[in-house]
Amino acid sequence: MIVNNANLQSLRVGFDTTFRNAVSQAPTLRDRVATVVRSSTSETTYGWLRQMSGMREWIGQRQLDGIAEAGYTIRNKHFEKTVEVSRDDIEDDNLGQYAMMFSHLGDAAAAHPEMLVWNLLAAGFDTECWDGQNFFDTDHPITDENGVTTTFSNTGGGTGTPWFLLCTNRTPKPIILQERKPITFDYKDRPTDDNVFFTNTFVYGADWRGNVGFGIPQMAYGSKQALSATSYASARAALQGMTGDGGRPLGLIPNLLVVPPSLESAGRKILNSELGSGGETNEWKGTAELLTVPWLT
């Protein structure tokens, strides 16, 4: 193939199409647990409004609730992956191998935000959220109906393989996926580019800018106890009993049980089986949806 602008543009279009097809076809599960927030600056600070008290009968003047904010900043990070195409391969029409390479580039670009979301969820047992406690912790601070500071727990403890029961039908979801710049395909493929002169290669790359952070801890329960009907029942009761500041019941309905592949069988038995382990009717069948996440281990 003659290396000229017209042929290079044709190659670029082909590489870009292969890349974007791979991005669009890559499996994505992150939207099940993450709220996407578009960011317009290098970092975004979330002034989480602590849960205010509920409605009251209007007698006399309105009662004004104060707002207590807790600043939580998510700083965007820039990620990239870059590949080279040999000028010799273009001249020799030896391009078949590059279809797989650009397909892999698209897979890697699409998978990166996915991995950020699931890695953060898994790290919730030892990573702080906006209230200064680990996201999954036994002593998140909160006030009761009398305004007295108390605590709540959203973890079952344990030392085994982690699993998660979530409420994802409210906003925000347990994880925030902050996106500053969507997945982009760039290139340096002019014959006069320095990379061609010095390394005899044309360069193509993908990049994405953003980061992840935690939402409200009451929306999620993480456990490292063995996944059983008993531990599932405890997690479900904990989420349903969650309150906001002032003791207001949040009315959460857990709807998603997230497990790694190693716990899929246990999750199916709890949520899909007609009978329990002792032959009794399985009272937990259909109480949540099972989501098996290959990025979790």
Rank of each mutant, 00 (worst) to 15 (best):
I2E: 10
N4C: 07
N4L: 04
N5M: 14
Q9Y: 15
G14Y: 10
G14C: 09
G14S: 11
F15V: 05
T17W: 04
T17G: 03
T18D: 13
T18P: 07
N21A: 10
V23P: 07
V23M: 02
P27D: 11
T28Y: 12
T28M: 11
T28A: 10
S39H: 05
T44K: 11
Y46E: 01
G47A: 14
R50W: 02
M52R: 14
R56A: 07
I59L: 01
R62H: 14
L64S: 07
L64A: 05
G66M: 02
A68W: 05
A68H: 08
R75H: 08
K77C: 08
F79M: 06
T82P: 00
V83K: 07
V85M: 04
D88K: 15
D88I: 15
D89Q: 07
A99H: 11
M100Y: 15
M101V: 15
F102C: 03
S103V: 02
D107L: 11
A109I: 00
A110M: 03
A110I: 10
H112I: 10
P113M: 01
L116K: 12
V117S: 04
N119Y: 00
N119A: 09
A122W: 07
A123H: 01
D126K: 15
T127D: 00
T127E: 00
E128W: 01
D131T: 00
G132Q: 04
N134Y: 13
F135R: 06
F135A: 00
T138D: 00
T138F: 04
D144Y: 09
N146M: 10
F152M: 03
S153N: 14
S153I: 13
G156D: 06
G157T: 00
G158H: 12
T159N: 15
G160T: 05
T161I: 13
T168I: 03
N169G: 13
P172W: 05
R180Y: 12
R180H: 08
K181E: 12
K181R: 07
F185S: 12
D189T: 03
R190W: 10
P191V: 06
D193K: 06
D194V: 09
N200C: 03
V203N: 12
W208Q: 07
G213H: 01
G213P: 00
Q218H: 07
A220M: 05
Y221R: 07
G222Y: 03
Q225Y: 09
A226Y: 04
L227K: 10
A229R: 12
A229H: 15
A235I: 06
A238V: 02
D245N: 06
D245S: 05
G247Y: 13
G247R: 12
P249K: 03
P249T: 10
L257S: 08
P261H: 03
E264D: 12
S265V: 10
G267V: 01
R268I: 14
K269W: 09
I270G: 06
N272F: 12
L275Q: 14
S277T: 14
G278S: 15
N282V: 01
K285V: 05
E289F: 08
L291A: 13
L291R: 09
P294G: 03
P294T: 02
P294N: 01
T297V: 14
